[in-house]
Write a protein that binds this DNA or RNA. Structure first.
Lengths: 230, 230
DNA sequence: CCTAGCCCTGACGGTTCGTCAGCAGCAGGC
DNA sequence: GCCTGCTGCTGACGAACCGTCAGGGCTAGG
């Protein structure tokens, strides 16, 4: 799911260096960066065992063997730390896009491609469950920075799918649907199912079946063909 | 370890009445119920113009012409008030289910049914955007009460779709996908697109195209047929 | 041993939250 | 009118958390 536009604001007077800065404007040295990293690690750690809203700066800081004030020296607030984690996560997206661009979308191979895509996306979501939950949460709450990250995750995937649709159907026939619309809807489906996978199991649906259902839908939407019988 | 002694849910001595109670256990009279309703209305009102997390009890109370302490007399916390609103919203679900059960899922009419379902669900989401946002939010944060409400919204729809799939394909062929899985995936898609409809427009996708893309996917998944060309 | 500068923190003001004791208004009995 | 009892309301308070800041400790270099 896409996101709203964004008045890009950067501090005008920090065009000098892209080095990371502490709260007081100093460039952290070796020791400082180590502390920062420890704080990041602890943030990720605690995100897995606690709710976003229950995540207190004091807990992170103490777990990292330091004090709240130190945390604020490296991050203006908890969200900023999580943003860094999200940024790292976003680096995994190109691999998924490659999957989309590479795999065949014509003929029999398309089903395997769909399968790989579905599996890849579910794995990605599972791997980054904690951070993604916060991204969803903060986006829903209207946080622009997280909305931006969310777009950075979903837009490339949607673009890749749309490109594949376009490449696949020789010439657009009249009455065809906008490929971006189809792609966007597919990504929305994949993302939401991945996020609520647990809920499906509660309904007694086997994960296997969920994956198969999605694979068939992706296949149909991408190729316009009926999915293979078995 | 005789673990959780199960927090006694209900005060033992209030099995007498299911009438609503104020915080002190008294049954509110005419005037009290009016105040309660005013608080509910204001909660709904402010939910539309503010973020869930920015929703302060004091604001609601003052806007309703009363004090925070009064709010707490009728609701243990803000969430509880919103839960009541969500409960009311859930009453609209059966109508959507009827749509699913009624409309034909065989032959040419199936496309119209898909269209009506997509449109109906998008309308529902639009109408209840504010409350649904909170439901998603709180669910993601792990609030059990909201998760329950969410299930109360999605389960009937999923069940209805699954029933329609089953009724539609005479006998289950081997290799078929669990109808509940397909239905669940479809509902997840619809819900997520509805929730982020605004984002699609940002990508330059026309709402019309989004609806059409979803309609075609629903049609395919429900009937197993290729959607009509034009 | 001393200085300089990075790094850290105790302690504090500001804010929000939820509670509680107690006041206000309004019957009804006498 | 006056007392009584009940419903409805609230000012004020303690507790919790947030983010800041002045100042102290640690390390490197002389």
């Amino acid at each position: 799911m896409p996101d709203a536009p964004e008045p890009t604001e950067q501090d005008p007077d920090d065009a000098d260096e892209d080095a990371l800065r502490a709260a007081d404007g100093r460039v952290p040295g070796r020791r400082g960066r180590a502390t920062r990293q420890r704080l990041l690690d602890q943030t990720a750690e605690m995100l897995g065992s606690s709710t976003f809203r229950d995540l207190k700066v004091v807990d992170i800081a103490r777990a990292a063997g330091t004090s709240p004030a130190t945390f604020y020296q490296y991050f203006p607030e908890v969200e900023s730390a999580i943003l860094v984690l999200a940024e790292e996560m976003a680096a995994e997206i190109p691999a998924l896009c490659d999957l989309i661009y590479a795999g065949p979308w014509k003929g029999k191979g398309a089903y395997a491609t769909s399968e790989a895509l579905v599996q890849g996306l579910m794995d990605f979501w599972e791997r980054n469950r904690a951070v993604l939950r916060v991204v969803d949460l903060a986006t829903e709450e209207g946080d622009h920075r997280f909305r931006k990250i969310r777009a950075r995750l979903l837009t490339p995937l949607t673009q890749a799918l749309a490109d594949s649709i376009r490449a696949q159907s020789g010439a657009a026939k009249p009455g065809d649907v906008d490929p971006m619309a189809t792609a966007g809807v597919l990504v929305a489906m994949l993302a939401n199912v991945a996020a609520h996978r647990y809920g499906f199991e509660f309904w007694g649906i086997r994960t296997d079946d969920t994956l198969r259902a999605m694979t068939r839908i992706v296949y149909s939407a991408m190729t316009g063909q009926k999915p293979p019988a078995a």
